[in-house]
Simulated scan of single mutants.
Amino acid sequence: MIRLLVTGGLGFIGSHFIEYMLEKYPSLHIVNLDAATYAGNPDNTESFRNNPSYRWIRGDIRSAEQIRQAFVDQIDGVVHFAAESHVDRSISTPDLFAETNVLGTLNLLEEARRHNVKKFVHVSTDEVYGSLGDDGFFTEQSPLAPNSPYAASKAGSDLLARSYYHTYGLPVIITRCSNNYGPRQFPEKLIPTIITRALKNRKIPIYGDGKNVRDWLHVTDHCRAVDLALRQGSPGEVYNIGGHNEMSNLKLAEYILDLLGKPHSLLEFVTDRLGHDNRYAIDPSKTQGELGWKPAIYLAEGLDSTVKWYVQSEEWLRRIESGEYRGGL
Rank of each mutant, 00 (worst) to 15 (best):
L108M: 03
E111P: 00
E111Y: 00
D95P: 15
I61H: 01
D88K: 11
R62C: 07
N44V: 08
D126K: 04
H86L: 15
Y38C: 11
I67T: 04
V72N: 07
D95M: 15
G40E: 06
I57V: 05
L28Y: 03
V117T: 06
E110K: 10
T125V: 04
S92H: 08
R89K: 14
N116H: 07
N51L: 02
G130A: 02
V87N: 09
N101K: 01
H80M: 04
M21D: 03
I75R: 00
E46H: 10
T105L: 09
P94Q: 02
N50H: 11
Q66A: 11
V102P: 04
I91S: 14
W56V: 14
I75K: 00
V87Y: 10
D43K: 15
V31L: 03
S27C: 12
N107Y: 08
Y38F: 14
D126R: 03
E99T: 07
V102L: 10
E110I: 02
I30C: 01
V31N: 08
Q66M: 10
V31K: 08
I30D: 02
A36K: 14
R58S: 11
R49N: 07
D60N: 06
Y54G: 00
E46V: 14
T105M: 03
I13E: 13
D88F: 13
I57N: 06
L96M: 15
H80R: 03
N50Q: 13
L103I: 11
N101I: 02
N51P: 02
G133S: 02
Q66N: 08
R58L: 10
T37W: 10
S85Y: 15
R49G: 05
Y25Q: 02
E23S: 15
N32G: 01
Q66Y: 07
K118I: 10
A64L: 12
A82E: 07
D60E: 09
H16G: 05
T45K: 11
S90M: 07
A35K: 10
F81C: 07
A112Y: 00
R114C: 09
V79I: 08
L109Q: 00
N41C: 12
S85Q: 11
F120P: 02
V79S: 07
S131E: 03
H80L: 04
K118C: 12
G77M: 10
H115I: 04
G104T: 03
H29A: 12
N51I: 01
T45H: 09
F12Y: 03
K119Y: 07
F12L: 04
L103M: 13
W56G: 09
I61F: 01
E110C: 08
I75E: 00
A112D: 00
I30Q: 01
H122C: 04
L109R: 04
I91D: 09
V128T: 03
H16S: 09
G77L: 06
E127H: 11
Y25I: 14
V102N: 09
A35W: 13
D73Q: 08
A39K: 15
D34M: 05
K119R: 14
V78R: 00
I18W: 01
Q69T: 13
E110S: 09
T100S: 06
S27W: 12
